[in-house]
């Protein structure tokens, strides 16, 4: 990541003058134009709130432009991502979708009609570390306790093929956790199931569990990514290299959450102008305050940096690809 920053900074410095000019020309294009911002989920929820926030503040920072949010839910974000990818490469269509689609692309899953490495990356707005959560009534107090379970305990996960399902399956398999994964717990069903006691825990994004934990219904026992000090990093608890590789992959997903991208081949000056507007939006104190209230702080990265992180995440060893393919394979474990 640091290297990428250096390269980015160097390249910026090298051609700062031409870039500034290019961005100006690009920005001029957006005067009196309408930009469609596709959100790959139904209204409401994290992707929608972030999408609307980004669209609103990009519009303010791209003079004369109008941003319109369009919800295109379905097929676990694939419909929305396909739509962004297939849109006209004029910079007037952008969108946001789940970073977890990286998994689908790696294994060439059904329905995927995009190549994330070719998209015009504008930026990402947040980091969303993953956590292993257990219900507070469970005797499991730490990751070691979980590993020491003699009989498998139930974990709740969303539908097969979803990003959270894939992560849960590859982590539990590689770490050889004594866990039985129960599927079909969508939305906040998993939290209710933990309260009822029918499942013991879940592997999920930290932001989706913050209220649950604050209410004392559960505890974090390990975390992947993020800077929180209240729970040990999973990578510090395991030794196996293969497991560490997978943890790194999951972490890279969490690092580039709430992304914004356009289709491949958008003219460079327009991409520059969009990145510029995105950056100004992210640095806007008002946007930061609003994101803070959603308990979703802004941790942005821009353009090239995001593109590099995506390419890196897509580039996995055959072993990892095999593991992912097994996790995404349709028949049940």
């Amino acid at each position: 990541m640091k290297n990428a920053w250096k390269i980015f900074a160097a390249s910026l410095a090298a051609c700062a003058a031409t870039q500034a000019q290019a961005a100006d020309e690009g920005a001029a294009f957006f005067k009196e134009k309408t930009v469609t911002y596709i959100v790959a989920t139904a209204p409401g929820g994290g992707y929608d709130s972030y999408g609307r926030l980004v669209a609103e503040y990009m519009q303010r920072n791209l003079p004369g432009s109008t941003f319109v949010v369009k919800n295109m839910p379905g097929a676990g974000h694939i419909i929305g991502a396909n739509a962004v990818y297939a849109s006209k490469a004029d910079g007037l269509t952008l969108g946001t979708f789940n970073t977890g689609l990286i998994y689908n692309q790696i294994v060439g899953a059904q329905g995927v009609k995009f190549d994330l490495s070719k998209m015009s990356w504008i930026g990402k707005a947040a980091s969303d570390p993953r956590v292993i959560v257990v219900a507070s009534q469970s005797p499991i107090k730490s990751f070691a306790d979980l590993q020491a379970q003699k009989t498998p305990v139930n974990f709740a996960t969303a539908g097969p093929g979803s990003a959270s399902y894939v992560e849960t399956v590859i982590l539990t398999n590689t770490l050889k956790l004594p866990v039985k994964n129960l599927t079909g717990y969508n939305g906040t069903d998993d939290q209710l199931a933990m309260r009822r006691g029918e499942v013991v825990g879940s592997i999920a994004s930290r932001s989706s569990y913050s209220t649950f934990i604050e209410n004392g219904y559960g505890r974090y026992i390990a975390q992947i990514g993020g800077n929180d000090k209240d729970v040990p990093q999973l990578s510090s608890l395991v030794k196996d290299q293969k497991a560490l590789d997978l943890i790194a992959l999951v972490q890279s997903q969490g690092d580039i959450a709430r992304l914004t991208a356009g289709p491949p081949g958008v003219p460079a000056d327009r991409v520059k102008a969009l990145i510029e507007a995105y950056k100004k939006a992210m640095e806007d104190k008002e946007l930061q305050a609003r994101a803070e209230k959603l308990e979703k702080p802004v941790e942005p990265a821009y353009g090239e940096d995001v593109a590099k992180a995506i390419v890196k995440a897509l580039n996995q060893s055959d072993d990892t690809k095999q593991l992912l393919a097994e996790a995404l394979k349709s028949d049940k474990k």
């Binding site: 379905g74 059904q110 329905g111 539908g159 097969p160 079909g184 995404l328």
Partner: peptide, 17 residues
């Protein structure tokens, strides 16, 4: 909901849900 197979939907993504 159990196996993640698209039933009677094939590549028609709008039917997946």
């Amino acid at each position: 909901p159990q196996t993640g197979t698209a039933r009677y939907a094939g590549d028609y993504l709008f039917l997946w849900d």
